[in-house]
Design a protein around this nucleic acid. Sequence first.
DNA 1: CATGAATGAGTCTTCATTCAT
DNA 2: AATGAATGAAGACTCATTCAT
Lengths: 218, 218, 218, 218
Amino acid sequence: MTQSQPQTAPLSRAEGKQRSRQKLITATINSIAKRGFADTTLARVAEGAGLSRGIVNFHFRTKDALFLETLKFMSREYRECWFRALDESGPSPAEKLEAVLMAEFEPPISNRNRMAVWFAFYGEAKSRPTYMSSCTELDDIIHDTLINLCRTIIEEGDYENRNADIIAFGISSLTEGLTLDILLNTGAISLDRGKEVLRSHLQALFPKHFPITRCTGN
Amino acid sequence: MTQSQPQTAPLSRAEGKQRSRQKLITATINSIAKRGFADTTLARVAEGAGLSRGIVNFHFRTKDALFLETLKFMSREYRECWFRALDESGPSPAEKLEAVLMAEFEPPISNRNRMAVWFAFYGEAKSRPTYMSSCTELDDIIHDTLINLCRTIIEEGDYENRNADIIAFGISSLTEGLTLDILLNTGAISLDRGKEVLRSHLQALFPKHFPITRCTGN
Amino acid sequence: MTQSQPQTAPLSRAEGKQRSRQKLITATINSIAKRGFADTTLARVAEGAGLSRGIVNFHFRTKDALFLETLKFMSREYRECWFRALDESGPSPAEKLEAVLMAEFEPPISNRNRMAVWFAFYGEAKSRPTYMSSCTELDDIIHDTLINLCRTIIEEGDYENRNADIIAFGISSLTEGLTLDILLNTGAISLDRGKEVLRSHLQALFPKHFPITRCTGN
Amino acid sequence: MTQSQPQTAPLSRAEGKQRSRQKLITATINSIAKRGFADTTLARVAEGAGLSRGIVNFHFRTKDALFLETLKFMSREYRECWFRALDESGPSPAEKLEAVLMAEFEPPISNRNRMAVWFAFYGEAKSRPTYMSSCTELDDIIHDTLINLCRTIIEEGDYENRNADIIAFGISSLTEGLTLDILLNTGAISLDRGKEVLRSHLQALFPKHFPITRCTGN
DNA sequence: CATGAATGAGTCTTCATTCAT
DNA sequence: AATGAATGAAGACTCATTCAT
């Protein structure tokens, strides 16, 4: 990221601060992934970031604030991946739909750490609505985009009895469910397997757009 | 619950003990659902059960043991509901499939408390192997049954290009994903909506078995 | 206090708890007197009480609550001494007035520890009005009694131009000021010196009631 | 304050330094008055002075040094007020006595901030010998002056049975006690009331010098 | 079987102090 | 002379766990 400028150049104050913040967020993600929410203490986060004990309360006022910032960071990262996949895909709605769905199973969204952290937050969501509210707004845009893609595909394919809202809802739930299954069944089910399941469902829903191309390699 | 024994008869030691244990498990579920994992303390669990502070360590040696027993209890309950739905449904595989899937959206499996607690455990699962295995093990039988149902339906309907394993995997992931969405988007998405989405997908997958019958009267 | 019952008798739960509470309050007083407010930590209080670290938060929920209870205890103690002096004195108003005033310079009100603690609280009063409000109500009764004593003495002695309110206010302020001086000027000024000053002022105010009896011993 | 030097001239180093030091001392007084000793942190003092965090340790090496300088500043200020009152008063001892006593109830000695801070220091004095000595030392000259005034008045008035030492001690204790009462009973008792009480006592002690002149017009 | 007082390890948080800029 | 990021020691508070009753 900063490799195009001389590495030895002394960081300005603001840069140094920003870098420390980011180190802490990364360390938080790693700690939650490795030890779970319950055993993620500020001391361990600081240690993971290679910084001193009191530092978290300096950059983020409280532990909760650190968690919130971590979640925001992951949301931002997720959104960027999602929209990048959308932009970089082929032009047709079907291509776009496939691209964004498959992106869910690619790093950085879908390495085990990230997934574990998402579900750790989900698990505590009930008691911390603050965390979630910072996520839902972005989900709304994504969800609307998804519905529009489905709607266009349905119109193009003249699929009868396909409701865009319901399909879109189902597709994103399926993706989320697959992610969870992959997380829980350590090793047994791979990311590729997830993609396969998803493609299979797309094919059932929109047979004209997603013709049968059996993945022979699995 | 305790059979048809005269209620006024003094409870035997074993029964009293068993009753206290169950009270504590129920209180644990309620507390996790209400306050999340992190804020569920033994003191609060005991208070919720109307019992004294030290009691948890008496019945379950440690807090972790209580959590594990709670998870086991919920697993048992889940399995019972699932197989009851299977038994009480009509005889055809399609009827059976629909029955078990819809059961996921019915109490007691799917009241908000239960859902919240499931995901709380999922959230910690990665870092707690014990939780993990307890979450996973019972799924095997259920998953096999699901695959068999799908296989039979595929054979009956002569559906081309439908792989029972993949379909079954997808269906259960979709169910789980729907549950999570319902939990996270408090109130916005109802259990009935979940059923609707699921039916819509079944219809896409197995059109001959699940003909288009727009939700009547709902 | 509890000496009339067999000392070896096991304390009941409630008694034990109450005794621990009192130990903590006493330890708090000693610590504030010895180390001042700033260096009085819960760990040191607990140690002083011969109890474990977490104990304060068990008996009193917070450090502030402990301080409040300590202040209440001292208030109660003070009031009891004051009214005991009032009761045990001779019957005349002048005797009563002298008795209560001299009581201020007698233990337990006026050992150095108590005085130090009072002023420690006063010093922080601005920021903790809660502490003080628990004291003022009792002061009101005492102050009213003082005014009434002065009023009777003024009437008895037919002192012209003596206003009971003002005199009473002055006398109690003088007492408080003397206590502070005694505290600050370690050793230099004794409790007896305080009594002497006070008597001297009483004599000036009410010469007929407090004739000149020079303390020859000083 | 900084002489009659042209104000727009850039401050010399020494002056700038001195100005910052004074800002910090003032901020310390305000903070102690507002928040009490315990909640007065260097960060808050710096903020109150409109300066940066590390500044206190730059100008005063430690927090304790800052407190001590603050105390010294207040002592100096107090002494200046006292002697100014002495100088500016009428020539007679009685006039001088009244002048210095009344000065205690005038700003800057007696605004609420100053009083609160004095008692904050008193509260910690017993356990901080440095504070103690700084509180006490300047009193010596003042106290001697007070005794001398009393002695002269006693001689002038030929008051029998009046001991200058004791009277002087009483008068200054009374003043201090009144100040404390005024501080503690927020709002209820005014500075004017304090003066009234003090005059009333002077009149009782030295009736020939302080004849009955009911507060006119107040 | 049950209670709840007591323990003490562990955690978050605050804050004086340092030091590179 | 001043800044403010970083440090690390210390303290309040929580809570699982024990054990005498």
